[in-house]
């Protein structure tokens, strides 16, 4: 099981969880497992065609999957996946 860190903006849709344990050998499988547990997250993370939304960055162990193999990026059982949507707040 790898760990997905849920950013504060998305926590409401994840039932308030800060981290979610998921099974899956790739980022795609892990995210599929995540949205299966928390369906409200689907539209926030994935586009209609099933690709990652462009405003959410996904990092595996600190590396941006855009520069790895996107959803096919492999994840190991001890890996941490970080979802990072843009935040604007500053005032």
């Amino acid at each position: 099981m790898s760990t997905i860190r849920i950013p504060p903006v998305l926590r409401t849709a994840a039932g308030g969880s800060k981290t979610v344990e998921v099974a899956g050998a790739t980022v795609g499988e892990a995210i599929a497992a995540l949205v299966a547990q928390h369906p409200a997250l689907r539209d926030q993370v994935l586009a209609a065609d099933g690709s990652l939304n462009r405003f959410v960055n996904v990092y595996v162990n600190g590396k941006d999957v855009r520069y790895e193999q996107e959803l096919a990026t492999p994840v190991g059982p001890t890996d941490t996946i970080i979802l990072l949507p843009a935040m604007a707040g500053g005032r």
Partner: peptide
């Protein structure tokens, strides 16, 4: 870092 902005409902301000 962020090629496009999120939709408003995903980007609440303070």
């Amino acid at each position: 870092l962020y090629p496009s902005p999120p939709p408003p409902e995903l980007a609440p301000g303070c």
